[in-house]
C-alpha cells in the first residue's frame, strides 16, 4: 500500500429524496492512509453521503470509485467485499447472538475456522470485551454494543474503514478509548469518520470536511474550521 494514492473518490455524487437533494453534487477525495472527519449540522446529509458510499443507498446521480472500482449502485456486500469495514449510525449488531459470535461472523467471512477463532479472541482482547464475551448483545449497554460493532469492523481487517458516529452515546471514558482505537485502526487503513463531538474530532483528525445542506462547504484542519466565521455560524453556532 503506497501512500499518496487515492482510495476513494466521488464525482458529482447526488442523492435526492423526492424533491430534496440530501447530497448535492459532491466531489470528494480520500487519500491512502488518511483519517478524514465529516462534520456538519443535523440533516446536513452526512449519513446520506455515507450510505451512498456503502451501497445502502443507490445514488441518483454521480459516481463513487473505490480503488478503481466503480461502486455506485452496487450492493453493500459487494462493496464490503472489497475490504471496506463499515459501521452505521444506527447500531447494527446481531442482537440475539453473543458478543463473541458477532465478531466471529465477521472474522469467518475472510478466514478459515482456525484463524477466525484466533482473530475473534484477539479482537475481544483488543477491544476489552472479555467481560461481555458470552453475553447476548441485545442485553448490553449502548456503548458496549457500539464496541461490539467496532469489533466486527476490526476483525475483518479492512483497508478502508467508514464509521458513522462511532462515539455517539458513549461515556467520556469510552469516547477516549474509541479515539485511541480509531488512531490504531488508521495505522493500517484509510478512514472516514462522521462525528458531532468536537473534542473527539480534535483527538483524532487531521483534515475535516464540513457538510452543509448536502454540499461540502470547507475542507481544512479542525482549528481552521473552528476559526472560520461562516463555519462557526452554520455549525458551531448551532451547537452553542
Amino acid at each position: 500500500m503506497r501512500r499518496g494514492e487515492v482510495v476513494l473518490e466521488t464525482r458529482n455524487l447526488s442523492m435526492a429524496f423526492g424533491g430534496v437533494r440530501a447530497v448535492d453534487r459532491v466531489d470528494f477525495t480520500l487519500w491512502d492512509g488518511e483519517l478524514r472527519c465529516l462534520i456538519g449540522p443535523n440533516g446536513a446529509g452526512k449519513s446520506t453521503f455515507f450510505k451512498c458510499l456503502t451501497g445502502q443507498l443507490r445514488p441518483t446521480e454521480g459516481d463513487v470509485v473505490i480503488r478503481d472500482v466503480h461502486v455506485a449502485g452496487r450492493e453493500p456486500h459487494e462493496i464490503a467485499a472489497l475490504g471496506v469495514g463499515i459501521k452505521t449510525q444506527v447500531p447494527n449488531v446481531f442482537d440475539g447472538l453473543s458478543a463473541e459470535e458477532n465478531i466471529w461472523i465477521a472474522a469467518r467471512r475472510w478466514h478459515g475456522a482456525e484463524r477466525a477463532r484466533t482473530l475473534t479472541r484477539e479482537t475481544i482482547e483488543r477491544l476489552q470485551l472479555g467481560e461481555v464475551r458470552t453475553r447476548i448483545v441485545g442485553t448490553l449497554a449502548h456503548g458496549q454494543r457500539q464496541w461490539v460493532e467496532l469489533g466486527m469492523v476490526v476483525a475483518a481487517d479492512p483497508w478502508l474503514v467508514l464509521l458513522d458516529e462511532p462515539a455517539a452515546g458513549m461515556t467520556h471514558e469510552e469516547t477516549g478509548r474509541t479515539a485511541e482505537l480509531i488512531r490504531e485502526i488508521n495505522r493500517s487503513a484509510a478512514m472516514i469518520v462522521v462525528e458531532h463531538d468536537m473534542q473527539f474530532i480534535r483527538m483524532i483528525s487531521r483534515t475535516v470536511t464540513l457538510f452543509h445542506e448536502g454540499r461540502i462547504l470547507m475542507e481544512d484542519s479542525m482549528d481552521a474550521i473552528s476559526a472560520d466565521p461562516v463555519a462557526r455560524e452554520i455549525y458551531l453556532g448551532h451547537r452553542a
Binding site: H77, A80, F94, I105, A156
Partner: peptide
C-alpha cells in the same frame, strides 16, 4: 438477527 449487518460484513 440483522440482515443489514450481515450485508455490511460482505
Amino acid at each position: 438477527e440483522n440482515e443489514t449487518r450481515a450485508e455490511l460484513l460482505a
